[in-house]
Design a protein around this nucleic acid. Sequence first.
DNA 1: TTGTAAGCGTTATCAT
DNA 2: ATGATAACGCTTACAA
Lengths: 327, 327
Amino acid sequence: MSITVNQIAEKCNVSRTTVLRALNNTGSVGKETREKILAVAEEYHYRPNLLARSLHHGRTMSIGVVTISVESLYFVQSLQVINKEAERRGYFTNIVVCDDSPEGERKLIQGLADRQMEGILLSPLNKGKDFEAFLQSLNIPVVCMGNQVSDAFTTVQVDERAAAQEAASRIAAKGYQRLAFICPPLSMGTERNIYVHEQRLFGVEEAAKQYKDVEFAVIKNMDYLSALPQQLQRGRTAFLCSGDSYALNVMQWANLHGLRIPDDFGLMGFDDINVLDYISPKLTTVSTNVEGVATTAVTELLQQIEAETYAPKSIYLKYQILERETL
Amino acid sequence: MSITVNQIAEKCNVSRTTVLRALNNTGSVGKETREKILAVAEEYHYRPNLLARSLHHGRTMSIGVVTISVESLYFVQSLQVINKEAERRGYFTNIVVCDDSPEGERKLIQGLADRQMEGILLSPLNKGKDFEAFLQSLNIPVVCMGNQVSDAFTTVQVDERAAAQEAASRIAAKGYQRLAFICPPLSMGTERNIYVHEQRLFGVEEAAKQYKDVEFAVIKNMDYLSALPQQLQRGRTAFLCSGDSYALNVMQWANLHGLRIPDDFGLMGFDDINVLDYISPKLTTVSTNVEGVATTAVTELLQQIEAETYAPKSIYLKYQILERETL
DNA sequence: TTGTAAGCGTTATCAT
DNA sequence: ATGATAACGCTTACAA
C-alpha cells in the first residue's frame, strides 16, 4: 500500500535506477534530482518492499522460531534471548506458536520455510523418520532445543539422563524411603517427541539400581494428582517431577489437603521456570538452562546459515541442581 | 534453496506455464507431461516461494503481533488465542517481541510493515503524536489492545477506570482503613504509554472521593516493596496492585517477613494472569479479560483488512472482579 | 549524471 | 495441450 520506486520515478520524471541511487546513496545523482526524489520519498513515506528485495538477492535475514505453547511457561523464557541474539546479528525473528499440536507444528514449519526463513529453531513435538525426512526436505538449517529428532540436525540440550540420575540420587541420599517420578508425558503415545522425558526416566532408573533400599515408582498418567494419596501411605516419600509445572500442581494439591512440604513429603522439579520466583516454599529443581540452550541454539543456527560448510552436532550444556526448600 | 517452477520446466522440457498448470490443477495438461512434472516436483520437494507469490498478488495473508515481553506474563496469554483465530481465518501470525523497549517496538513494527504484513496488533509501549504519525505512515491496519494511541486506531480494552473504581470501592466496603494503590508504571516517565495504569489511577481517585473515611495512598516507585512497612503502620491496610506481578511480589515479601494475607493486610491485583493458578493464597484480582480482548482485536483487524471501508472504534469489553482469598 | 535491460519466482493473459 | 510475455518491486550490470 506504500509508494514504490517506480511511482517515485514517475513522479520525478526519472528512471527507477536514478531513484534507487538517490535513495541508497549509491552512485552519483544530480543535486536537484536527488532532492526532489528524497522529498517525494519522504512525503509518501517510501519504504523498500522487503519481499521484493529478498526475492532478488535470495536472503530474508529472518529466522523462524516454533514455540510449543505459551502456557507451558517453559520455552517462553527462551524467546527473549533468541530474539536478542538474532537481532544483534542482524536477523529478524519470526515466532509462531503451535499450541501443543504436532500437526500444527508441521504446518507452521512449512509455512516458515515457504516464507523463506533462512533457518528454523524449535523444540520438536514430532519425531521419527517421517518427520526427519520432512525437515530435510525443507533444505534449510534447523536446530533443535531439548528434544532430538536425529543426528542430522544440531541439537542443543543438557544431559537430562545424568541430571535425573543425580537428582534422584540426592533424594535417595536424603533418606527418603520412596521416590515417585511424576512424568505424565510418558503416557502421550508413541508419536510424540518426549525425548527429554525419556532421558529423565532412564536417569531415574539408573539411580534406582544404585539405591536398592529406596523404593522407586513411576507415575505416568496425566491424572497424577489422584495417584498421590496412595503414594504417601508407604513411608517417607519424595516426588521428582519431570517439569516444574507438575511440581507446582502438586504444591497446590498439598495446600488443599493441608500437607506441608517438605515436612509431609519432598518435592523436586525440572527446568527452573521463571514463575518459581513467586512460589513458596522455594522449589528445589534442576535448571536445564533454557536460556543457555536458546542462546547456543541461535548461535549455531546463524553459523549454519552463514558458513559454507557445517556439520550437525550434539551440544550438551551444563545442568545445575538447585537445592532450595522442598527437599 | 528449493527447486523452482523454472527449474522444473527446464528438467521436463516444457514451459513454466505448463508446469504451473500441472501443479495447480488449472487448465489441461497432457497425461504424460503432467505425471513427469509431478514426479519431478515431488522428487525435489517443490514448494511455491511465498515471497514471490505475495509480490505478485499483493497479499501476504500474514499479520504481525508485537508482544511487550514474555516475562510480563501478561500479553503472553493472548498469543495463543490470536494465533488460533488468525489461523482459522487463513492468516499466518508473525510474533515479535520488543523486550520492553519503546525504540525496539518501533523498529519491529517497521520491520513487520516492511515485510508486508497486512495488519499489526499491539499493546503499544509508545504514545504521542509522533508515534501516531508513524503508525499512520505505515498505511496498514493497526489495532491496539489495552493502551490507546489515538482514536485513529481501533482499540480494544476494558473500562479500566471503572474497574479500578469498583475494585477500590470493594476494598473500602470491607472496612479497610487504608488503601495503597501500587502502580510503579506511573514513574516510568512521560514517553511511555501507560494508559491503562493512568485509567486505573483515575478510578482509584474517584473511589477516594466517595470513601472519605478511608485513607488513600499511591505508591508509584519501582521499589515499592521497601515502601510497604511504613504503609502498614497506620491502620488496617489493603494494597491494590496495578498488575498481578506486583501483587505476587508483595506476597513473596509478606512471606519473607512472616506476614499473613489477608490477616495482616489485604491484597488485590489486576489482570488475572495464568500463573495465579499456582499461587496460594488465591489472589483476589480484576480480570481484564486478556483473551477476550485479544480475540476481539484479531477479529477487528481482519475485518479492517478485508473490508473496503472501516471506521476505527473504541471497543470496551466487560471486566470482572474475582473475589478470592486475599481480601 | 542518467538510463536500459535482465533477473529473482510466481501468476495471469493472450496466443498458438 | 502448450507457450510467450508481461507484471509484482527491487537490484545490479552495463551502457550512454
